[in-house]
Amino acid sequence: MTESLGKYTFRIFRYDPERSARPRRDTFEMEVSRGMTVLDCLQAIKAEQDGTLTFRRSCRSAICGSCAMNINGKNDLACHLQVALLRGRRIAVEPLPGYPVIRDLVVCMDEFYDSLMRVLPWFVRKTGFPDRELPQSPADRDRIDNAVNCILCGSCTSSCPSFWYNNRSIGPGALLKAFRFIFDSRDEARGERLALVDGRDGVWRCRTVYNCEEACPKGLRPNEAIAALKIAALKETV
């Protein structure tokens, strides 16, 4: 398990406005062994070579969504990406595109979090509750499986050209959240939520570029969800 894979070079985006207004890229060399993830390498670099290297991380098991970043041109979670699976020995690590950088690989995701607020991101029930759980068939539960597995890492919205061009665009991450409720058989705010995503900055901003599906580290299908939302909105209004 500790077989060495030899030396790798990490070229990492650096930005610290306290020291310089200009971003730069630093190069670090390190010995990588089999089983090491990109996050393991970033931690080793921080511990041994440069303590000022700044990135978010927490669970290191691909469920908290803290360490989403752009690695060799693709948005992914640093913690679940094995270095051995990357092509070449030079690895480019950049912050998620589309969000303002706070420092190094840490971005400000307020726009992403705010976008969630635009789709009524909580369960709504108007007709009251039974004493027990609301019934739901396994098939109805499966309908939203894709969407409830979202970890809000922000990779999809970060990769969406519609969001780059126009940050009022709701973006695939929040639209996936909208899907999660609109297609939940127990939820009773379908109409309100469809109206929320039916505007000019909602589903119709999606140009089916499919970047979001490419970028999702969990293999979810935001674009498929958006397509379903478009059809639902169409049936509602036309």
């Binding site: 705010d114 607020m117 635009r118 789709v119 009524l120 709504v124 029930r125 108007k126 009022r168 665009s169 709701i170 705010a189 309100e192 109206a195 929320l196 995503v197 039916d198 505007g199 000019r200 900055d201 909602g202 589903v203 119709w204 901003r205 478009k230 909105a233 169409l234 509602e236 209004t237 036309v238």
Partner: peptide
Amino acid sequence: MSFSRSESGGAGATAAHPTGSYGWLF
């Protein structure tokens, strides 16, 4: 149930922001 927080946000279809569904369908 309060919808107050959503009313300010959203890309909702209103007079100022008409629904995009007709255009998309067209």
